[in-house]
Write a protein that binds this DNA or RNA. Structure first.
Lengths: 247, 247
DNA sequence: ATCCTAATTATCACTGTATGAAATATCCAT
DNA sequence: ATGGATATTTCATACAGTGATAATTAGGAT
């Protein structure tokens, strides 16, 4: 399955680039031979997952179809929707649903609690696992150790406010999250953004995703002390219990 | 690249199924050996393009990321946006942007002209090339003959109103579209839905996509006679001229 | 609980396909 | 025009993907 893996490596490179990439660029970033890259990009293009333009390749329209299919069939997403809406209106915060993909998380759905709805929803956004409450819960709650090593290999993290965390600080943070059953984040990824998040587990206790509640730091007090932790945990529990279990 | 092709065949099957599919189902629909299917689905799952649930596999969350990347980088989409908005408000109709993917079209963007915005935008929807104005223009305007044979192989089409078209009727329809430079559709795919569409070509005359204006049949007269054809053609021209050409 | 069937995972020898070096062609800038 | 970079084609070799078979697991019925 080497070639298939490589095809998706190419696709990932196209996804991460915010601009069209020339064939040589792709070959460089994937560390593949140019000829190989060309063949792979060709197949991607045939199927619509890559597009060719004047100045290079980008991701292609077929991804939209597949995403549409995912959005309409994913049991987790379907089950979570009403819960997100409920908790968003109850708290007035923005409720976000994430799923882990490899060593990243992807925003699957979002319900704005506040007044002004955002213009372009960043659904589909890929974010790291560490900075951010809704990512940390994945690291903290991983049953196998495949994420354990990810946590070990984490470089010292710099927060949006300039704080720097070394490995031991990260580990104690994760331990606290495990103990509490929820994570918090204050200005970690973004200035003036505070979040509380919990891991969603199915009835067999396997992690399915995470839910986060986000608001402006200046309008929220010490989130750990208020009712929000209980709210997210309840929401996460509600979602998990409604998803049919099974690997 | 056989295995890579097959991987995307599997992905397409997952996309087209509106429900989770068991491994055996996928193998059946792709006409692949079960073992092969399993390996391919495994890779898809690793990269997040497939998800495993209690009762089978669906498309996966990574497609959302890729779709997000496409939506934010596709030159066509970026260039078309303002034109769609303009023509939608000018005509009061819904303006849709399609791209061809193999023998289908995919809805890339849409601006509602009317009052009530739809709840879930069907962006990413995959539709056939024949029934529907915005699909027919691809068949009519194909420079090479790869779509010519698709048109030849079209089965007799049944419209939403029950009309049936045989091969020769289809061909004369396509010829008329070529002559006019636009296509119309009255209750073809949906009852009480009329559309006018035009092909978008880049400055080198290569087809890039299509734009369609849609409204209720009962509120539109004979669309071929009014100003709409000129409107779509102008919009298509505007978009095409602003996209940097180059294969 | 127990059996039976169906579905999923693992094993492995063979074959055909993906690979990458090199050569050729194409594009762009000067 | 000329040169340099990028893209495409060709081809012999190695090895990765294939699918028949077997082992295992899960699901349903009794």
């Amino acid at each position: 399955m080497r070639s298939v893996h490589r095809a998706f490596d190419v696709l990932k490179v196209l996804e991460l680039a915010q601009q069209p990439l020339r064939l040589t660029d792709i070959a460089q970033r994937t560390a593949l031979h140019v000829a190989t890259t060309q063949r792979l990009v060709g197949v991607l293009t045939d199927h619509g997952y890559a597009s060719r333009h004047a100045n290079g390749y980008t991701a292609g329209p077929a991804a939209l179809s597949t995403a549409h299919a995912f959005a309409t069939t994913s049991p987790l997403r379907l089950v979570a929707r009403p819960v997100l809406e409920e908790v968003a209106t109850a708290t007035g915060l923005t409720a976000s649903l994430y799923v882990r993909v490899q060593d990243t998380r992807v925003l699957i759905d979002r319900v704005e609690g506040g007044q002004r709805p955002h213009y372009s929803l960043p659904i589909g956004e890929r974010l790291p696992l560490y900075p951010g409450a809704a990512g940390k819960v994945f690291l903290a709650g991983d049953p196998d150790n495949d994420l354990g090593k990810i946590a070990d290999e984490l470089q010292p993290i710099t927060f949006a406010d300039g704080t720097v965390l070394d490995a031991s600080a990260i580990h104690s943070d994760l331990q606290r999250i495990r103990d509490n059953g929820f994570a918090t984040s204050v200005d970690e990824r973004r200035f003036d953004t505070t979040a509380v998040a919990a891991l969603i587990r199915d009835t067999a206790d396997r992690p399915l995703g995470s839910i986060g509640l986000t608001g402006a730091t200046h309008s929220l007090g010490d989130v750990g002390a208020g009712a929000l932790p209980a709210d997210v945990r309840r929401a996460a529990q509600a979602i998990g219990s409604r998803v049919p279990a099974g690997a």
